[in-house]
Write a protein that binds this DNA or RNA. Structure first.
Lengths: 244, 244
DNA sequence: CGTAATCTTGACCAACGTCAATGTTCGTGG
DNA sequence: CCACGAACATTGACGTTGGTCAAGATTACG
């Protein structure tokens, strides 16, 4: 596993990422403490701990889940390549949720104080951090709406659509399909249903020609139909994801 | 209704708000375009519209609710005095949810470009804006967890506890009670249950000596018991709410 | 090829939603 | 101050949805 430097990072070259200016690149590189790798199932950060670092997910999928004492875990967000991990901790002094790798992941390690430095520094990079927060807040808001009064079908339809569009925005999806490594039980923890009921609902969706999941690939047969069912339309801003 | 200037604002004097430095006060005052008032049930902002302004809720309660075409509305956040309204729109160019007054409200009108200016300016005020986002994201994350796998009892217990603690943090709650103007139907839209079931659950909670609601006042009889039931503990940061 | 993990399907049941009737509170105008 | 109506809250009866349990089927992996 050889180290990749910021200068020849392949991720932020992809469409969907705004290229960094020279001085920005230097700033980020100067706050970078190397990179790491983690197997599926291992934890990158733990809820409640003081922040050790800020991370950028570079490859693979991860999940954010608050610790719920003695209850089923709930996944509150799926983290995809390019997403920041641990911002909450670096801002408020405690990680608010754990982050667990869902596949093997690779990530960059950034200075814990990067947000503060960014605020001092100001400029577009700082604004991008703000927009990152806005985007995540907004995404949780939509899921909240779905969990509050959406049917199982609506919840799943929305989640598939959103995930697909997020992947497409960073160049990781094909025309009508995308990688999809999630297990039924993980889907259940995301949409707030039992694993069994997820399975049933998926069977129905498959029969109706909406979607199919096979070999860790999600096939979207009718993006429009899915959107109609979900009622809510996912918003994928990320015209300028930042920071590696 | 006489105008109050930033200089003799009574809200930000309260405990829980970090007092502004002289230059910060000047900056905020310079980006303030007066204040407004709205009756219960009227909309302050509408989902999907381009941002007209940023607001600070000065008095009263409001609710954030994304537009759901042809479905029950879901309330994704309760806005209390001192909270910012419309940040999402000012950052991303579109308000992501509507905000409706739940009681008569008074609010301050701030420049739509304030977040951008704040980013240029940097400093503690900018960091406070970031922390505001972090706090709201975190709050939605907790509700998401509750709606995903919490019982009706847990959902309500958590919501009462969180609201009580938020009000206390800004000096608007007494030892064991606080104002509580929400109707059953609004509670239902927050916790994702039917109005009838909220009513039933509240009756049970009252019988168990947990809480009581009467005359728009919430009585918390056992804060510890409530916290045990809710499993999640609300986090109220706001050591330094900002910006009027 | 064998074992473990994951997925599917069926049967059953409890929790919650819906409908509807009754009771209560609040504001308004006489 | 009282009377009235409208909005809101409570309670009961009943049906549906989705959870739980358990038994097979399929897949993944050594």
């Amino acid at each position: 596993m050889n180290e990749t430097s910021c200068e020849n990072c392949t991720l932020c070259r992809k469409e969907g990422f705004r290229p960094l200016r020279a001085d920005e690149l230097k700033f980020v590189a100067g706050n970078r403490h190397g990179q790491g790798e983690l197997a599926a199932g291992r934890y990158l950060i733990r809820a409640g701990e003081p922040p050790k670092a800020l991370y950028t997910l570079y490859e693979g999928w991860a999940a954010a889940c608050p610790d719920v004492p003695g209850g089923e875990t709930q996944i509150t967000e799926i983290l995809l390549p390019g997403d920041l991990v641990g911002t909450q901790g670096c801002i408020t002094g405690r990680y608010s949720h754990s982050v667990v790798a869902l596949t093997r992941i690779r990530y960059c390690i950034l200075d814990r104080l990067l947000p503060e430095k960014l605020v001092q520094r100001g400029g577009p990079l700082c604004f991008a951090l703000l927009r990152n927060f806005a985007e995540e807040r907004s995404r949780r808001e939509r899921m909240l709406t779905l969990l509050g009064n959406g049917s199982p079908l609506q919840r799943l339809a929305y989640f598939f659509l959103e995930t697909f569009m997020r992947l497409r925005a960073i160049g990781l999806a094909a025309e009508t399909m995308c990688p999809f490594p999630l297990r039924r039980s993980q889907l259940a923890q995301i949409v707030g249903l039992s694993e069994v009921h997820v399975s049933r609902t998926l069977a129905a969706m498959r029969k109706d020609g909406l979607i199919d999941i096979a070999n860790n690939i999600l096939f979207i047969d009718g993006e429009g139909k899915l959107a109609d069912i979900a009622r809510l339309r996912p918003m994928v801003y990320s015209q300028g994801k930042l920071i590696l």
